[in-house]
Computed example of a mutant assay.
Amino acid sequence: MKTVETVAIGDVRPGMRLAEALLDESGRVLVPGGCELTDSMVHGLMRRDIAELTIEREIEEDPATRAAREARVIAQLDRLFRKAGDGLETRQLYRAILDFRMADQA
Score class of each variant (00 low, 15 high):
Ile50Asn: 00
Phe100Gln: 11
Lys2Tyr: 13
Gly15Asp: 06
Glu60Phe: 13
Phe100Ser: 06
Glu20Leu: 00
Gly27Ser: 09
Gln105His: 00
Met102Gly: 07
Ala8Ile: 01
Glu5Asn: 12
Ala75His: 01
Arg69Gly: 02
Asp11Val: 03
Leu53Tyr: 06
Arg95Cys: 02
Leu53Ala: 13
Arg66Val: 01
Gly44Thr: 09
Arg82Cys: 13
Arg28Gln: 09
Tyr94Arg: 05
Val4Asp: 00
Glu25Ala: 03
Ile74Gly: 03
Leu18Arg: 15
Ala51Asn: 04
Ala96Gly: 05
Leu45Met: 15
Leu45Arg: 06
Ala84Arg: 12
Gln105Phe: 04
Ile97Ala: 00
Ala51Arg: 03
Val42Leu: 15
Met41His: 14
Ile74Glu: 03
Leu45Glu: 10
Leu53Cys: 14
Glu61Val: 14
Arg91Met: 07
Tyr94Asp: 10
Leu22Gln: 00
Arg79Gly: 06
Met41Ser: 15
Gly27Pro: 02
Asp78Trp: 08
Ile97Asn: 08
Asp39His: 12
Ala103Val: 00
Ala68Phe: 08
Gln76Gly: 11
Leu88Phe: 11
Thr65Pro: 04
Ala19Gly: 06
Leu93Tyr: 05
Leu37Ile: 08
Tyr94Gln: 11
Gly87Met: 09
Gly34Gln: 02
Ala64Val: 04
Arg101Met: 05
Leu22Ser: 02
Gln92Tyr: 06
Asp99Cys: 01
Leu18Trp: 08
Ala84Tyr: 13
Ile74Pro: 03
Arg79Ile: 04
Leu30Gly: 02
Ala68Tyr: 05
Gly33Gln: 09
Gly33Cys: 11
Gln92Met: 14
Ala51Trp: 10
Ala71Gln: 03
Phe81Lys: 09
Tyr94Gly: 10
Phe100Val: 05
Lys2Val: 11
Ala8Asn: 12
Ile59Gly: 02
Leu18Asp: 13
Leu30His: 02
Leu77Val: 04
Phe100Tyr: 10
Cys35Gly: 04
Tyr94Lys: 11
Glu52His: 12
Gly85Ala: 10
Arg82Ala: 15
Arg17Cys: 09
Gly27Arg: 05
Glu58Tyr: 08
Gly33Ile: 10
Gly44Trp: 12
Glu70His: 03
Asp49Met: 12
Glu5His: 11
Leu80Gln: 07
Cys35Thr: 15
Glu20Cys: 02
Glu60Gly: 08
Glu70Phe: 03
Gly44Val: 01
Asp78Met: 04
Gln105Pro: 01
Val42Arg: 15
Asp104Ile: 02
Ala64Cys: 11
Thr54Pro: 10
Ala96Asn: 01
Arg66Ala: 15
Ser40Trp: 15
Leu18Glu: 14
Arg17Ala: 09
Asp24Met: 11
Arg72Gln: 13
Ala19Gln: 10
Leu93Ala: 12
Met41Ile: 13
Arg28Trp: 12
Leu88Met: 10
Leu98Val: 00
Glu89Gly: 11
Arg101Asp: 03
Leu80Ser: 06
Met1Cys: 09
Gly33Met: 03
Asp99Ile: 00
Arg66Phe: 07
Met46Gln: 00
Leu53His: 04
Pro32Asp: 14
Ala68Val: 12
Glu36Arg: 01
Gly33Tyr: 02
Ala64Ile: 15
Ala19Cys: 01
Arg13Phe: 00
Glu52Met: 13
Asp62Gly: 03
Leu23Lys: 12
Thr6Arg: 00
Glu58His: 14
Arg17Glu: 13
Gln92Phe: 06
Asp86Thr: 15
Ser26His: 09
Pro32Phe: 07
Thr54Leu: 14
Gly10Asn: 09
Ala21Gln: 14
Met1Asp: 09
Cys35Asn: 14
Met1Glu: 08
Met1Asn: 01
